[in-house]
Design a protein around this nucleic acid. Structure first.
Length: 380
DNA sequence: TCTGGGGTCCTAGGACCC
DNA sequence: TCTGGGGTCCTAGGACCC
């Protein structure tokens, strides 16, 4: 355990948030079934080994060869030819995830699931958060056979960063008072929200570490990142952030996309694919009593240029015919100058309404009323 | 070296309205 | 002929996260 709390026991913090992060989640779930692979480099990858895909998760042994999530499989195989590649089985991971979340909900009413392998847990009510965290780790292991790493901090940002400091099977407590002392010399990239592009731009200002970023005047950051991003990043670099845990958030969009095994030029095939994805989304939304107004087509041309085209309908719908027609119209209007690598369809501007389902075209039933409701539910 | 799939949030410009 | 000031909606793209 890494405990930086010292004279500031977390029990004295106004909020104690935990970020529970499962260790190499997909691989670990697979190893439950195949324990003989423990200790070997293992990669969970695409279902179809010949498809163009990326690494979903690599075991810690594989990571030593430079294999990590989102790395193209072709490169992963080159870097670690001896790795055992297991095709992903999302349904299995979903079940394991549900078990984990059930354990977490036994410790707090405020659990925010941020991915299949990750959740924030508000431990504000616990006088002994470190002991609680150890208990959580024990119970997750007992219930699922899986280990996790827990970060404890006064807000989401610090909890998240702390969870990365002691991994796998770790527990790290990090008060804000010691935030810069502990992570000040680390690269800016460890701050959530700093991706490759932002890292590059900061580099231009000779800002490389979290401490550099914390010292930087907001105006100079704003010149490169824009005022809004500059302000939020400056605050993060000093360890300030939200402590809010949002239990049930409304979904804002739903999409499906598919990368073809080889680039496509056949419009008939592609139109069919677009319609199929549109219908899947509409049907899924419809069963939940949700309608959408904006239909977006995503198209990626070879070698790797991505475009979107969208259209907003006059009223929300979950009618598969309507969504499919809109998506196909967007596809037909798009002027392609190269073969197509990926097609996707998304529906956004979602409205929860019992009467937005198929067959409801009456504007009085599916129009203004439900929209009003959705606006009222929008978070501040 | 070759880049998945499912999301969220932000920005910027244009249309349109008062 | 020179041209406001907001506000909102829509569209396209970018950055980021798991």
């Amino acid at each position: 355990m890494l405990d930086f709390a010292g004279d500031h026991p977390p029990g004295s913090w106004p909020h104690v948030l935990g970020l529970v992060d499962m260790d190499a989640f997909y691989v670990s779930v697979e190893l439950l079934e195949r324990p003989e692979l423990r200790g070997r480099p293992v990669i969970v990858g695409p279902r179809d080994p010949d498809s163009r895909g990326v690494v979903m998760t690599a075991s810690y042994e594989a990571r030593r060869f430079g294999v990590h999530s989102a790395l193209p499989m072709a490169i992963a195989r080159r870097r670690c030819p001896q790795a055992v590649v297991i095709p992903r089985d999302m349904e299995r991971y979903r079940r394991a995830s549900e078990l984990v979340m059930t354990v977490l909900r036994g410790y707090s009413d405020l659990v925010e699931v941020v991915g299949m392998d990750e959740a924030y847990v508000d431990l504000g009510g616990s006088p002994t958060p470190k002991a609680r965290a150890r208990q959580i780790k024990r119970e997750v292991l007992a219930e699922t056979g899986l280990t996790c790493s827990v970060g404890l901090g006064p807000n989401r940002l610090i909890a998240k960063i702390a969870s990365d400091l002691d991994k796998p099977d770790g527990l790290c407590v990090l008060p804000r008072e010691r935030f810069l002392e502990v992570i000040g010399s680390r690269p800016t990239r460890i701050i959530p929200g700093v991706g490759p592009r932002t890292e590059e731009r900061l580099e231009q200002l000779e800002i490389r570490t979290v401490a550099d970023l914390a010292r930087a005047p907001e105006q100079s950051l704003a010149a490169v990142l824009g005022p809004s991003h500059a302000r939020s990043l400056g605050r993060r670099a000093c360890g300030f952030g939200s402590a809010e845990v949002a239990v049930g958030r409304e979904r804002k969009s739903e999409s499906r996309e598919r990368t073809f095994a080889s680039d496509q030029t056949d419009p008939t095939l592609m139109r069919r694919e677009v319609a199929a994805m549109a219908r899947t989304i509409a049907t899924h939304l419809g069963t939940q009593g949700i309608g959408g107004r904006t239909v977006t087509l995503k198209i990626r041309l070879a070698p790797f240029r991505t475009f979107t085209r969208s259209r907003t309908l006059p009223e929300p719908t979950a009618d598969a015919d309507v969504v499919a027609a809109a998506a196909q119209a967007l596809f037909d209007a798009f002027e392609r100058d190269a073969p197509v690598r990926l097609l996707g369809v998304g529906v956004s501007n979602l409205v929860r309404a019992a009467d937005a389902g198929p067959g409801s075209r009456d504007p009085a039933a599916a129009g203004a009323g439900p929209v009003q409701l959705a606006l009222g539910q929008r978070p501040a």
